[in-house]
Simulated scan of single mutants.
Amino acid sequence: MPHFIRSTTRPRRCSTISAEHDQAEARAFAAIACAAPSAAGALIAYAEAEAEAMLRAHPIVVTALVDAIVEKGTLSGIEVDGIIMQAMAAEGLALERQRRADWTRVEQSAARFVRS
C-alpha cells in the first residue's frame, strides 16, 4: 500500500518514501503472489498497465486526489475512497447532463423537421 494511503479513520503523517521503496514492495508482493518467479515481472507489468489505464480513463479522480494530497499531505484510506466516490459521482452527473442536453437538441431538431 502506498505510504500516503492508510486504512485508519484518521490520517497519519509519514516520512517520505521513495518510488524505489514502492517498486521493492511490488516485487515482494509479486514474488508471494506468483508461483513461477518469471511470472512476477509479468504481474507487475500487468498491474502497471491496468493502473495507467484507470488513471487515464478518470483524470477528474486523479486531479481530485492530487488536490487533496497537496492540501492535506496525507490521506486515510477512507478519505481516498470518499474523494474517489465524489469525483466519480461528479463525473457521472456531468455526463448525464450532457446526454440530456444532447437529447434535447435531437428532439428540437426532430420537431423542426416534422414542421417543415
Rank of each mutant, 00 (worst) to 15 (best):
L95S: 11
G77L: 00
E107H: 06
P11F: 03
E79I: 02
I83H: 00
T8E: 11
I44S: 02
A90R: 08
A39H: 10
R99I: 03
L43Q: 00
V70A: 10
A94T: 06
V114E: 13
M85H: 15
H21P: 03
V80D: 01
A33D: 03
P37S: 13
R10F: 10
A57N: 01
A49E: 09
L43N: 01
R27T: 05
R10S: 13
A31T: 13
T63H: 11
V106I: 09
V70M: 11
T104R: 13
R13S: 13
H58A: 10
A53P: 02
R100I: 07
A90V: 03
E96K: 12
R97V: 07
G73I: 02
F4K: 06
A101I: 03
A40E: 04
Q98N: 10
E50F: 08
E71L: 11
A94F: 05
V66Y: 07
A35S: 14
H58F: 06
Q108I: 04
P37D: 13
V114W: 08
P11Q: 05
L65R: 00
G82E: 12
I32P: 04
Q86C: 07
T104G: 07
A39Q: 07
A49M: 06
E20K: 10
Q108Y: 04
F29P: 00
S7W: 12
I83F: 00
E25R: 12
E91T: 07
P2T: 10
I44T: 01
A33S: 05
S76T: 02
I60K: 15
M85Q: 14
G77N: 00
T74H: 13
A111F: 08
E79P: 00
A101S: 09
F4L: 11
I78S: 13
I60H: 15
T63A: 10
A30W: 01
V70R: 09
A24H: 06
A94Y: 03
A39T: 04
M1G: 11
Y46A: 10
E48F: 07
S76K: 00
I60S: 14
T8W: 06
V106K: 06
E52L: 15
S38I: 12
A33R: 06
I5V: 12
R97H: 12
T63N: 09
A87H: 02
E52G: 08
I32T: 15
I78A: 14
L95F: 09
E20P: 02
L75V: 01
I83Y: 03
A68N: 05
Q108M: 09
I44N: 00
E96P: 02
I17K: 14
